[in-house]
Nucleic acid binder design. Structure first.
Lengths: 319, 319
DNA sequence: TTGTATGCGTTATCAT
DNA sequence: ATGATAACGCATACAA
C-alpha cells in the first residue's frame, strides 16, 4: 500500500513533485516526471481517495433521497441522475426513506458531516423551512414544486400537469371523472386535487381516491370501484403502475375498456405501452439529469435555480 | 465549523479527552465529560466523517454494481440491500454499468482507492479470474453462481431453478416448450439453456430466444412469435417484465391465453399478479439482505461463503 | 523547476 | 484519569 511519500523516496524527489505529477501540473521536468511515473508503476501506487477528500474538502458524492429504491416511479429519475454523475466522475449514495421523516433527516445529516457534497431529494416529507436549515452545509435540489429561493428545484408542476391531463379527458368526451392519487397530504396530491376541483365541473369528493402507490394498490382498487353505485366514466391516475394494476384486474374480470371505464395514467413508463395504457408522459429522466447538473454547478458557486418542465399526452387505447 | 481542537480549547481539556467523550470511552471524569458536552453544544460541533474515515481506514460504504438502476429486475435485491445497510449504518454507492466491462472495472477501482469497504455485484460481465485480482482490496460478493472460494456468493442456481420451472410446465401438460432469455452469453443464460436441453425432450434450437431484457422487448417478441410456423405451446421467460410485455401484447391482439400459448414468468414481481402471470418466485430481497450481511462480516474477518437459495412456483392464470 | 512545511480532523499510542 | 504527540495520505502556500 505505497503512499505518496514512498513514491517520493523511491524516485528521489519531494512529495510535492509527486503530487504535481499526479495532478498533471506543469513545471515538472520531463526526467523527474518519468522517474515518478516509473516509481508509481513499480510500487503499484494507488491514490487514496479518502485522504484526497480530507485534504480538498470535496467528497465527489451526492446523496439521493427517495422513498423506495425499487419503486418504478423513480426509475427514470435515477437513471438520469446516474448518467450525469458518471460524466462528472461523481458517486451517488442512495438513501431510502420509506416516507420516514427521520430517515430524511439522517440523509441530510450526511451533508452536515461532510460525507457528501450535496443532496438531491426526489421526494420529501420535511418542510422547506426545515430543509433550509441544512442549506448552509451544501447545495440541495428537489424534484418538487414550491421550493424557496435557496433550494434548487427541477420539477413538473403537478397542478398544471393535472389540468393538462383533465383536459385530454374532457376533449375525449369524458365529463364524469375520478382521480386516483398517492399519499393523501403530499404537496403534489394537494395540487392535483386542487386542479381537479378547479377544472372538472362534475368533480366530487367521493371520486377522489388517495393512498394508492403500487400496482397492488391498483388491483385492490378494482374491487371497491366496481362495488360503487355511482361511478365516474373515466379515471385519471397519478401513476402508471397503479393504473396498470387497475387495468389488468379489470380486464381480467372482463370489464371492457374504455367502454365501461376509461383510464389515463401518468408517467409514460415503457411497460404501459404493452397494455395500451393512455398516459401523460413526464420527462423524468431529463429531470434527473438536470437535478444533478444544477446541484453540481451550485457547488461551484452558481446560484440556485427553479426549472419547471411540462408533460405531454401519450395516446394509447384506454381512452 | 468547529473541530475537535476548538472544542478542546473551549472546554479546556485535551483533544484526546474530547475524542474519548465522542466515542463514549470510559476513564473520563464526569465533570470534564460535562464540560466537553457543553462545549460541543455551544459551538455546534459536527464530527467530520471524512477525517474519521482517513483515521480509521473504514469508509462505511459498499459499492453496489448492477446494469441498470431502473430495471425492475434488480428492485427487490436493492431493497434488501438498503434495509440491511440501514441497520448497520452503512451507505450504498450505486454504480450503473449498462453491461460495460469498463464500468465494472471503474466500480471495483473504488475498492482499490479506498473509497468503499467492499463491493457487491448483482450482475457482472467480468470473469471471476479478473474479479479475484480486486479481492485483496476488500470483500466482494456476487449474486451469481460459479464464484471461486475467495468471493462470496448468494444466489439462485439458475440451472436448478429453470429445471424446476420446466417441470411445472411439464406437469401442467405442456411438452412443446420455448424459452426466452436475456443476454445470450451470460452465465445464467447458458445455465438456463443447458437446463432446457437437458430437461425438455422436444427442446429445439429455434425455440430459444435470447436478447430479451425489457417489457418492450417482450412486446416486440409477440410479432415474430406469431409469424413463426411451428410454435411451442408454452413459453418460459427468464424475467417477469418481458413476460408481461409479451402477455399484454398478445391479449391486445386477441390471442387467448393459455389456450393458444401458455406463459410462465420468473421473479415473482408484484405487478405480475395484476395480470395473473404464473411465475417462479425468486427470493431476491432475501438475497440482497444476505449479500450485505455476508460482505459486512467478511470485512470483519469472516470467511467468504456460498449460499444457494431456491425458487417456488407462484400460480397464476397463464398456464 | 523544486522542495519544505503546514493543514485537513480525527483516532491511537504511549506517557504520566 | 488525562494529555502530548504521532499517524492517516494527500494538497498547497510559500520559499528558494
Amino acid at each position: 500500500m505505497a503512499n505518496i511519500r514512498d513514491i517520493a523516496k523511491y524516485a528521489d524527489v519531494s512529495v510535492t513533485t509527486v503530487s504535481r505529477v499526479l495532478n498533471e501540473h506543469p513545471y515538472v521536468s520531463k526526467e523527474k516526471r518519468e522517474r515518478v511515473r516509473r516509481a508509481m508503476a513499480e510500487l503499484g501506487y494507488l491514490r487514496n481517495q479518502q485522504a484526497l477528500t480530507l485534504s480538498t474538502g470535496r467528497t465527489q458524492r451526492f446523496v439521493v433521497v427517495l422513498p423506495y429504491l425499487d419503486h418504478p416511479y423513480y426509475g427514470l429519475f435515477v437513471n438520469g441522475l446516474a448518467k450525469a454523475a458518471l460524466q462528472r466522475d461523481y458517486r451517488l449514495v442512495m438513501w431510502q426513506t420509506e416516507y420516514q421523516l427521520d430517515q430524511e433527516r439522517q440523509a441530510l445529516d450526511l451533508l452536515k458531516h461532510r460525507e457528501v457534497d450535496g443532496a438531491i431529494l426526489l421526494s420529501h416529507t420535511m418542510t422547506f423551512d426545515e430543509m433550509e436549515t441544512y442549506r448552509q452545509f451544501g447545495p440541495i435540489a428537489v424534484a418538487t414544486v414550491g421550493a424557496p429561493q435557496t433550494i434548487s428545484s427541477v420539477h413538473v408542476d403537478h397542478y398544471t400537469a393535472f389540468v393538462a391531463g383533465l383536459r385530454v379527458l374532457a376533449q375525449a368526451g369524458y365529463a364524469e371523472i375520478g382521480i386516483v392519487l398517492s399519499r393523501q397530504d403530499s404537496p403534489s396530491s394537494i395540487a392535483r386535487q386542487q386542479a381537479y376541483f378547479d377544472e372538472v365541473e362534475l368533480a366530487r369528493e367521493r371520486w377522489v381516491w388517495t393512498g394508492y402507490l403500487t400496482s397492488e394498490d391498483g388491483i385492490g382498487l378494482a374491487d371497491s370501484f366496481l362495488r360503487q353505485q355511482e361511478r365516474p366514466r373515466a379515471l385519471f391516475f397519478s401513476s402508471d403502475y397503479v393504473a396498470l394494476g387497475f387495468l389488468g384486474e379489470l380486464r381480467r374480470r372482463g370489464v371492457s375498456i374504455p367502454d365501461e371505464i376509461a383510464i389515463l395514467g401518468f408517467d409514460g413508463h415503457p411497460i404501459g405501452q404493452a397494455f395500451g395504457l393512455s398516459t401523460m408522459h413526464s420527462p423524468n429522466e431529463d429531470i434527473g439529469r438536470t437535478l444533478f447538473d444544477v446541484t453540481f454547478e451550485e457547488m461551484n458557486g452558481a446560484a440556485s435555480v427553479t426549472n419547471s418542465l411540462t408533460v405531454t399526452y401519450l395516446p394509447g387505447t384506454t381512452l
